[in-house]
Design a protein around this nucleic acid. Structure first.
Lengths: 245, 245
DNA sequence: CGTAGTTACGTACACCGTACGTAGTGCGGT
DNA sequence: ACCGCACTACGTACGGTGTACGTAACTACG
């Protein structure tokens, strides 16, 4: 009889392998890496157990010896790429600068793995690398003199904002995948509908806004920086200009 | 020959019905309402074309006369519940107050339809009710004297923050659905893992934080209010206290 | 040295979205 | 008036999904 009872468990606490039986042909990491490879190349929806098994060259059901459920595979994937954060030895002492760097790293990782932002909203957990991340953030925030709960709020908001921003950017591109027409056509049709509606006169403010800034090729990086800066500002005690120094 | 060519189109521009042939037994709205009902009751993953058809008492494929693709159904669902915003006749003139009300309404709708936050990150579009929402927000922001692009950023950030907050809250509950054990067991196991890791001594800052605020049953509503207020503060010109009045 | 636990993995089931074909219906044009 | 055709409803079928279960081979432990 294979398999184990469906008892509540967390993938991180489950030992990778036991000592009995034949030597496993793969490691949990092998499977996760293959899944990440597929998701990077063909999108998260292309990650099926059969596809991962094919990538590794093994039978589909063999994967279930390493990963009990597919959702766990998602958690493992998120944790794996969360290992890409590169933190220095020590926080710089400037919490604003440190948090800005963290936000940029998060964004970079989400660009490197365009499925991350979406999956994180579902499969976020206190994985090992998530704890490492949290610990680093808290270390950076030591100079910030606010209650602990507020620090967690700050981290959550920076994180959430980065995720929401990137997820929103990528939703359009991801949606185009598997559509019977191209992304350009999709955007053209949607843009045409928007313009048609706005031209109808029912949305004067929106019309005014679109008229004022007709073709504003705003720099996404710049907006991102501004957004994060604004967010951090909102946590800095306004009447204490020495805090950030 | 039924069906129509797979040309780029937007569901909002597609006419609901044409005049020929037999009278349709349902309306697009009927289908969307059924889908919303199912999603409210059993989660978004329970919304399948077969299930919706069963709810309506018609054949599965009949739905495709009303909705060309399932993804369009998602968009229609988001738009439908976006119709639940109740706006007064005119903005109050206090943009901070108005935006706070909007954020609260968004949150209430997302609680009423626990699938919304997740689906919106994928199926957000310039639907009719989204335009209505945007127009109302811009109307509220008329007293705020900043460039138009910044107003859009503000709206996007408030929206994104509400979504991220609620989605994060609901991810745990949604994840528990369809799990072979209960949500309480899930949380217990995850909490135990977290505590075990933190007790290991590798995460001193995190340990300190958890020790300081041991059982802090913080009020989610209060945190939400604070977060939104903070966000709005960050857009208010700091050296002009008259703006908000 | 048996045996129990583990590995690999083929088969099977329930479910999914949806392409396609068919039959019936009722409006528009002649 | 009536014919044709666009449109309706919908059954069947295909290729996909996650995964429960059974079987056979293998190895470390009592």
């Amino acid at each position: 009889m294979a398999g184990r009872a469906a008892e509540p468990e967390v993938i991180w606490a489950r030992p990778e392998r036991a000592g009995r039986g034949p030597k496993p042909a793969y490691s949990r990491r092998d499977i996760v890496d293959a899944a990440v490879r597929i998701a990077d190349a063909d999108g998260i929806d292309a990650v099926s157990m059969r596809r991962v098994a094919a990538e590794l060259g093994c039978g589909t059901m063999s994967l279930y010896n390493y990963v009990p459920r597919k959702e766990d595979l998602y958690e493992l994937m998120v944790d794996a790429v969360s290992g890409e954060y590169a933190f220095p030895e020590e926080p710089s002492g400037d919490w604003r600068a440190d948090m800005t760097v963290i936000a940029h790293q998060s964004r970079a990782i989400m660009y490197r793995h365009p499925w991350l932002a979406r999956v994180m909203t579902t499969a976020y957990a206190f994985s090992p690398n998530a704890l490492r991340f949290l610990e680093w953030c808290l270390g950076c925030l030591v100079p910030l003199d606010v209650p602990p709960g507020l620090k967690m709020q700050l981290i959550a908001m920076v994180n959430g904002t980065v995720m929401a921003t990137v997820a929103n950017e990528q939703a359009i591109a991801e949606r185009a995948r598997g559509l019977p027409w191209s992304e350009a056509e999709e955007q053209a049709v949607r843009g045409a509908y928007l313009m048609g509606q706005v031209a109808g006169g029912r949305y004067p403010h929106l019309a005014g806004l679109l008229a004022e800034a007709p073709a504003a090729p705003v720099d996404a990086d710049e907006i991102f920086d501004m957004t994060i800066a604004r967010l951090l500002d909102s946590f800095a005690p306004p009447e204490d200009p020495l805090t950030a120094a």
